[in-house]
């Protein structure tokens, strides 16, 4: 198994996130051909079944679509959908754990806000 993946999450989730990331940061634009299952298997040394599971989820959710005999393509509006999903997940994934940790350490809410403001790269 490639080092790109870790054991914290099911691998197929990580495969789909890998493709999602490429769409979100514009490496893959709408209408572009996504890497094929075989390419992903060969490149990341992940089993076919696992890769297919990740890719199929993206197809089901309308992020990717299949063209028979040609391959997978990024759907129209895929980036927007993904951004929406990720914003929704942002609170769960990041903010909650941030506050849990802050509680453990006894950092108050206002201190957290202050820390965020002072963190490099947070101003935009």
């Amino acid at each position: 198994m490639s080092k790109v993946f870790d054991s914290s999450k099911p691998i197929f989730m990580q495969v789909r996130e890998l493709i999602e990331d490429q769409i979100v940061n514009d490496q893959l634009k709408e209408g572009d051909q996504a890497p094929s299952t075989n390419q992903l298997v060969s490149f990341y040394k992940i089993n076919h079944a696992t890769v297919s599971k990740g890719i199929n989820q993206l197809v089901e959710e309308g992020i990717l679509f299949k063209r028979r005999g040609i391959g997978m393509f990024v759907a129209e509006g895929a980036k927007e959908t993904l951004m929406g999903q990720r914003k929704e997940a942002f609170v769960d994934n990041y903010v909650k754990s941030l506050m849990q940790e802050a509680n453990k350490l006894g950092i108050t809410q206002s201190e957290v806000i202050e820390l965020i403001k002072n963190t490099k790269g947070s101003e935009f």
């Binding site: 198994m1 298997v41 040394k45 992940i46 089993n47 076919h48 079944a49």
Partner: peptide
């Protein structure tokens, strides 16, 4: 096994 398992259906 660990080197080739990703090939197997």
């Amino acid at each position: 096994v660990s080197e080739m398992d990703y090939l197997f259906d």
